[in-house]
Design a binder for these strands. Structure first.
Lengths: 196, 196
DNA sequence: CATATAAGTGAATGAATATTCACTTATATT
DNA sequence: AATATAAGTGAATATTCATTCACTTATATG
């Protein structure tokens, strides 16, 4: 038997993400991917059943990575401020450690892969996050609110900052780069909104 | 001369948006669009120069509609709470009056059309919104903060709610539909975060 | 009514797409 | 060293794509 070249396999994954981020799913093709990796198209069909299988597999693997990063050192029994701070830390770390991966996820979110992508790695994740909110609410640290309201206040601002950062320029026209200072300033406002 | 059938022209626009929202830009083609409209592909090339021209024109027209809706009855001299409330009202109205159009914009945002799309209708818009924030800050109604932080707190939660609404189900698995109550509850938290 | 003119068409073109196939190559095991 | 087996290939296939073209149809205007 011959062993599969795991370097090549990894190259395929990285290149696929890079191409999709750059040109969108719309501008992505198997032939282009093969060419960019300097391998034969047919090789892609050894690794993956078809185009959908390729995209979904890479998506789910990346999703798992995100999920693992976000859950790290997080305990749903933490206080509102401690717990949320850890969440912001983890999510921020993921963004900076894997620049572009958020853009990759944006592509998936606005595609037909969305549902399968989310369902893949979000199960455990949902449970832990839901538990945390419930604890905090039961302890009376925050008012009664729906999960949607909670999420919208607690995390949407963070992802908005990330998008500004990715686009590299603010609405005001000035170039923009996220800094720790801006991040934690925004975090403090979020805490102010949520705390009773 | 023969007059152009404006009903048909409008059908093309509506159908294009519907198809793109449903299948993504990836799954959208001129032939499919023509078939869905029961017209010849060649007719599309009477209305538009090419595929890009078609997408961009429809995008810009929709963008203009959004911009006009959002700017209505808004005065950058309003107080923080009054001004922001009007903004939320306008943006919410746009979402409910044109369901799906936000999803269409999401598609564009993660595509190569993004830049041209934004630059088309955002100019005036940026100015007014920037002016409002500046006024509010100068008056001391909110602390010093970057435009990005301001936007992330002031509007990102609204769009997060809209996305939950579009997806029709919450992270907690229960079906979800946005209500006025949830909307204004979230708005109040946003005001709490921003107000000094 | 006649006709100029733009609207609208169905079938074609060539390029790009996903996928397959007959084939060669490397290597783990015997 | 021999060989079985999976990795890897380049060229082909069939499909879908955007775009064009020679043509017909409707109608506003003279």
């Amino acid at each position: 038997m011959r062993k599969r070249d795991t370097d090549k396999e990894d190259l395929v994954k990285q290149t696929a993400i890079k191409l999709i981020v750059k040109n969108g799913l719309e501008g992505f093709s198997m032939n282009k991917l093969a060419k960019a990796c300097n391998i034969s198209v047919a090789t892609l069909y050894i690794y993956y059943k078809d185009r959908d299988d390729l995209i979904l597999n890479i998506a789910m693997e990346s999703g798992k990575l995100m999920s693992d990063t976000i859950i790290k050192d997080f305990d749903p029994e933490l206080s509102l401020e401690e717990g949320l701070r850890q969440q912001w830390k983890n999510r921020y770390k993921f963004m900076t450690d894997h620049p572009g991966l958020n853009l990759f996820f944006d592509q998936l979110r606005s595609s037909s892969y969305q549902e399968e992508f989310l369902s893949g790695f979000l199960k455990e994740f949902k449970l832990v996050m839901g538990k945390f909110m419930q604890n905090v609410m039961e302890r009376g640290e925050i008012e009664e609110m729906t999960f949607e309201t909670y999420w919208a206040i607690a995390f949407a601002p963070l992802y908005a900052l990330a998008r500004f950062d990715n686009e590299g320029k603010s609405l005001s026209g000035k170039p923009y780069q996220m800094t720790d200072k801006v991040l934690w300033k925004t975090f403090n406002l979020v805490i102010k909104a949520l705390k009773k």
